[in-house]
Amino acid sequence: MKNIFQHIKGDRTIWAIFAALAIFSFMPVYSASTNLVYVVGSGSTFGYLLKHMALLIMGFAVLYGVHKIPYRYFSGGSVLMMPVVIVLLIYTLAQGTTISGANASRWIRIPFVGIGFQTSTLAGLVLMVFVARYLARNKEKEVVFKESLVQLWLPVSLVLLLILPANFSTTAIIFTMILLLVFVGGYPLKYIGFILVSGILALSFFVLIAKAFPDAMPNRVQTWQSRIMSFSSTEGKEAYQVEKSKIAIATGGPVGVGPGKSIQKNFLPQSSSDFIYAIIVEEYGLLGAISIVFIYFLLLFRVFVVLRTTTTIFGMLLVIGVGLPIVFQAIINMAVAASLFPVTGQTLPLISSGGTSIWMTCFALGMILSVSASKQETEEDILDDNPLDILHETI
């Protein structure tokens, strides 16, 4: 056991949180997957459990590998990844596929392994690091808005516009997190207000175009409208899911009906992903619900602990940029299950089934652990990194 701990660095509590969420996820995913087996008619419950375990093992490999990388490399790496992300998003818009009955083509298939990969999740992670890099490099300079439009907001806008047609909720979350990050990073408030208004106007223009040319983006705006309308309605597919989720939560009681004994998992179409929190509450009750909330808020607390020990501006912004979205996504998922928020399609990090969400969450946690494990980085070491030098070292 001592040999294992010698090889893992960084905040031990974050490692424990990862292990706790990953191990706990086995039973809810196994239980909820009966919906896919008996309703959809594909695979077996044990097969889905094995797949989930394999994805978590791969996620651990990502987490371990990333936490060994000095975090200064993520600064230049974000610049190298921006063109890659843009190409992947364009390819997804053109060739994206639908997985597990989802109503949008957000995934591409990884060749030879047959696993879907949601490119918008990778794009969000890269964007947060890219924004953190920009803010750190300009921390002592007076912000020239025209320059920041080209250097910061142009690439950010391009990526968000490529995500928007297939995934409004992810676009909104990324945009919100970026605004929060630039606020923390000292970007002038008046410029943030201008960017916010511009984002709202751009979304409005997109909706008008989508309505004017419905064949170009079939069902996308209608899906957004139906989710918002069903939030206060009792009819429609989204309302049906929320009703079943509320029944599951109400059935749970103080200690739940017991592991694997959920009834509503047979009626919730996304019981192993989007609505897995409802299944957890039904099977483990209020005790299980509070425990999950506590673990995510413990992760948030540890993010702030890492912030206090970080010696560089980029390290602080990096931890905020990749750490807060994990907790924010968890809050949204749980709020949707409790009918406190419209249906968004966001998973519960490290618990819901799905490879992309698990891998990108592990990548983000790995970057946080890399920051917490570093004791000797200086701002000059990080900001002087040339992306081409990083590529050369990698090769």
Rank of each mutant, 00 (worst) to 15 (best):
1 M>G: 10
8 I>T: 13
8 I>W: 02
9 K>I: 04
13 T>Y: 05
16 A>Y: 08
16 A>W: 08
19 A>L: 15
20 A>W: 06
22 A>L: 14
22 A>R: 02
23 I>Q: 09
24 F>P: 00
28 P>G: 15
31 S>Q: 06
32 A>K: 11
34 T>M: 12
38 Y>A: 15
40 V>D: 01
48 Y>T: 09
52 H>V: 07
53 M>G: 10
56 L>P: 00
68 K>G: 02
69 I>G: 00
71 Y>W: 07
82 M>F: 09
87 V>S: 02
88 L>H: 01
97 T>E: 14
106 R>S: 09
110 I>Q: 02
111 P>W: 05
111 P>A: 15
113 V>M: 07
113 V>Y: 04
127 L>D: 02
128 M>L: 13
131 V>L: 10
136 A>T: 03
144 V>R: 06
149 L>V: 04
150 V>I: 10
159 V>E: 00
161 L>E: 06
162 L>P: 02
163 I>S: 05
163 I>V: 13
164 L>I: 06
167 N>W: 04
179 L>P: 00
189 L>H: 01
191 Y>E: 11
194 F>Y: 07
195 I>M: 08
200 I>S: 10
202 A>L: 05
203 L>I: 13
209 I>L: 07
210 A>D: 04
211 K>S: 13
211 K>E: 12
221 V>A: 11
221 V>G: 14
234 T>D: 06
241 Q>V: 03
244 K>T: 03
247 I>Q: 12
248 A>P: 00
251 T>L: 14
251 T>S: 14
253 G>Q: 03
265 K>R: 14
273 S>I: 05
280 I>H: 01
281 V>G: 08
281 V>S: 13
290 I>A: 10
290 I>C: 13
292 I>L: 13
293 V>I: 15
296 Y>C: 12
299 L>G: 15
301 F>S: 15
302 R>A: 06
303 V>T: 08
306 V>K: 04
309 T>K: 15
310 T>S: 08
311 T>H: 07
316 M>R: 13
319 V>I: 09
322 V>D: 00
325 P>T: 02
333 N>D: 02
334 M>D: 01
336 V>I: 08
339 S>A: 14
342 P>N: 09
349 P>S: 03
349 P>N: 04
350 L>H: 00
353 S>A: 10
354 G>A: 11
354 G>S: 10
357 S>N: 10
358 I>Q: 11
361 T>L: 09
363 F>E: 07
364 A>E: 04
377 E>L: 11
379 E>Q: 14
385 D>A: 15
389 D>P: 01
